[in-house]
């Protein structure tokens, strides 16, 4: 049986769900294998992060191949931090011939926040230029304008931060990403549905698909920490209070309930086209979130 691809699912208007796999630092991959096995048939695709938080890990490309081997569908995350345009393009061609068809284009965190702070930051391209480059490969030319012997066929994704403050420069970039060729967006984590609804009222003007980012909350402390320290994330007071009033030891269960409730609301009210769940180390509970959302 031919399963519908992530692209076909999202483009068909079906509410689409993705989750995330963070490659490990080192060669022990048992836990990651377990997460892939657990999730590959429960979500439409799995993002694979690219040296997330500027910490050196197994390459996104290799883990995407593992997901494919296991019968799942990967989304290759590609940042601009570690590779110049030659390396990015050759990895993209390589990804295509391995059968990887989704790529999420990101700027990447700055290098000094990670575990190799003395390394040379590359940022040869920015995320909008990377999107444009992938589109060019899809059209049979490299970024230098040279003909390819065989083009790629990537479904091009990007990110946007709906709660960014100030919002205008963020939206300027969002619109450039659309013009450059992005077809779908996975947002930074959102928690305030009314704010997100306003963003969607604006974003609906464009012929693109938007998946709301959800980071699993596990405690009021985590929510407060993110409000204070993570740019572009806003957890409203009612959610902080709901977590705070949760019995000790039940924070994770409450977080699962909140995420499930949000997914249900986003889907039932047709606010956006799907959700991207970032469980950050707690991938094991994603099936429970999906059950809570159904």
């Amino acid at each position: 049986m031919n399963k519908k691809s992530f692209r076909e699912t999202l483009e068909s208007g079906e509410f689409t769900i993705t989750a995330e796999v963070g490659p490990p630092k080192g060669t022990h991959i048992d836990e990651m294998f377990h997460h892939i096995d657990l999730l590959k048939d429960k979500v439409h695709a799995l993002n694979v992060t690219d040296n997330q938080s500027s910490v050196m890990r197994i390459s996104s490309l290799a883990v995407c191949q593992i997901i494919k081997d296991k019968g799942g569908e990967p989304i290759l995350q590609m940042t601009c931090r570690d590779r110049n345009r030659l390396a990015q393009q050759s990895d993209l061609l390589g990804a295509h011939v391995l059968g990887i068809r989704n790529v999420l284009c990101l700027t990447g965190d700055y290098i000094t926040v990670g575990d190799h702070p003395q390394a040379k930051p590359v940022f040869d391209l920015d995320s909008a230029q990377l999107i444009h480059m992938v589109k060019s490969l899809n059209e049979g030319k490299d970024i230098g304008g040279n003909e390819l012997s065989g083009s790629t066929d990537f479904y091009i994704g990007a990110t946007v931060t709906p709660e960014s403050k100030p919002i205008e420069p963020q939206l300027l970039k969002f619109e450039k990403k659309i013009k450059a060729g992005a077809r779908f967006f996975q947002t930074q984590a959102i928690y305030d549905i009314e704010n997100f609804r306003r963003f969607m009222d604006y974003a609906r003007k464009f012929d693109i698909k938007i998946m709301a980012g959800l980071v699993l909350l596990v405690s009021a402390g985590m929510a407060k920490y993110m409000n204070k320290n993570v740019p572009g994330i806003f957890v409203p007071d009612n959610l902080v209070d709901e977590l705070a009033s949760t019995e000790k030891g039940k924070g994770l269960a409450k977080g699962v309930e909140i995420a499930g409730r949000m997914i249900r609301q986003l889907r039932e009210q047709k606010i956006c086209d799907g959700v991207h769940i970032m469980a950050i180390g707690r991938e094991g509970v994603i099936p429970e979130i999906l059950a809570a959302a159904s």
């Binding site: 601009c80 931090r81 700027t107 990447g108 965190d109 700055y110 000094t112 926040v113 930051p121 940022f123 920015d126 995320s127 909008a128 230029q129 990110t159 946007v160 931060t161 960014s164 403050k165 100030p166 420069p169 963020q170 300027l172 970039k173 450039k176 930074q188 740019p231 572009g232």
Partner: peptide, 27 residues
């Protein structure tokens, strides 16, 4: 710090830079 040419990254916050929140976001 990233030399971005097409607008801010997602790390910008209240006009400050994710790399050093004492510094202004160029974009």
């Amino acid at each position: 710090p990233k030399g971005l040419l097409n607008g801010p990254c997602g790390g910008t916050n209240e006009g400050k830079c994710e790399v050093d929140n004492e510094k202004d976001c160029a974009w």
